[in-house]
Design a protein around this nucleic acid. Sequence first.
DNA 1: TGCGGCTTAATTGTATACAATCTAGAATTC
DNA 2: GAATTCTAGATTGTATACAATTAAGCCGCA
Lengths: 235, 235
Amino acid sequence: MQAQPIPKAKPQDATQKVADALALAIHEHRLAPSTKLGEDEIGEIYNVSRTVVRAALQSLAHVQLVEIQRNKGAFVASPTPREAREVFEARALLEPRTARSAASRATPRDIEILKDHIAQEHLALDAGDNGRALNLSGRFHIEIARIADQDTISQFIETLIARSSLVIALYWRRESALCESHAHHALVQSIADGDEQNAEELMHSHLVDLNSALDLRDRPVQAQNLRELLQTRDQ
Amino acid sequence: MQAQPIPKAKPQDATQKVADALALAIHEHRLAPSTKLGEDEIGEIYNVSRTVVRAALQSLAHVQLVEIQRNKGAFVASPTPREAREVFEARALLEPRTARSAASRATPRDIEILKDHIAQEHLALDAGDNGRALNLSGRFHIEIARIADQDTISQFIETLIARSSLVIALYWRRESALCESHAHHALVQSIADGDEQNAEELMHSHLVDLNSALDLRDRPVQAQNLRELLQTRDQ
DNA sequence: TGCGGCTTAATTGTATACAATCTAGAATTC
DNA sequence: GAATTCTAGATTGTATACAATTAAGCCGCA
């Protein structure tokens, strides 16, 4: 009678699940930069051993969402102004060409997906869930990279967008994030039209616009527990 | 009397050492694509536990030097023709601009380092150590990225060059690798001269040239033990 | 009161042990 | 003789145990 007894405890990789959960929390700004990520603590939360937590943390360290200091532990990464600048420079280098490629390849189904993303983003904003809106906004860019059908570059873009989330958490100065919606909408339109040139230019100006909303002045690392800040001399 | 008693058994991360050793072996083509990398086996070689071997393998998997199949184990990655093409497309996108930037920033010391790289490469070639020569050739590109002083993009380039080594192992068709030397030499000259335009163009044509030396026709994965090949139906 | 060294607790790094899964070979059947 | 199922060995996934390092608190002392 028990065709499928129970949804199964571990259908897939436990490590991946923990890593995804942590990444989501970071993307949605529930975990602030410099937050300490203790192995035992996380292990208890997700009911897994330190072994898998460590693997997840190392995985996140590879995309620079967390920083691991030997014998000290893992912390949510806290990009310096310089790193922040570099992330957006790299995006400006990669994404416009990706948008162009997407415009040349997008299927009606792809356009649908993009529009759905925007709709969900609006929903999240209306619900006051800024974290979720920000995450969706990032995934919009990832979706475009996917459509462009260049896995290698897509991966790079994915990590850049992940890091962008941290940059925004630290250096965003504009109040409203709504401004993006217009840019995204126009971008979808040009991709739907197959207007490569326009898509490339819109993506470029969109990124310039995003960048201009950052205040990259050097600010002392605002650790959640101020201890480090107080006992750190240089850096 | 024992100011520094002994070189110290583990001055740094054991995981990193294992990962570096494996990466070097792959870069120098001592480990062919699709080679099985058993955890116990590697652990015995380097006298470390599976824990650190696993961490090293996962680290290498992140840069796609190895591929991990769940419950199956780790294998030296074997890029498909498509992946190979993408790797070089990405390099063509990133490296010319990086070379330009390097030309605008290089110090005399940097030039010295680059020339030293070329010299060492020649030495390795004369010694018949093609693996080492190839590795040095790759590190030459990494050095240029370092000079460009863009850490984020440099990291991307580093992984691309690592993967290039695998691509070359699988798809290289030209006999001599010497052709590169001229290109590298001219590149250094333009960087030393601060000729940004020239550096960018030289890097571009160099990559085009490299790409033209590949034969990306689909070839069935030549696993070292043919078993997989025989019992695999599709892909 | 403030600084410095020492002791202890907590946390991470590594190794080992156990459980789950896969691979290979042998026995069995057609 | 070929194919298939079953069993035994080997390999990976995860958890736990121990070692090493770091962080915190306490005491003493100037």
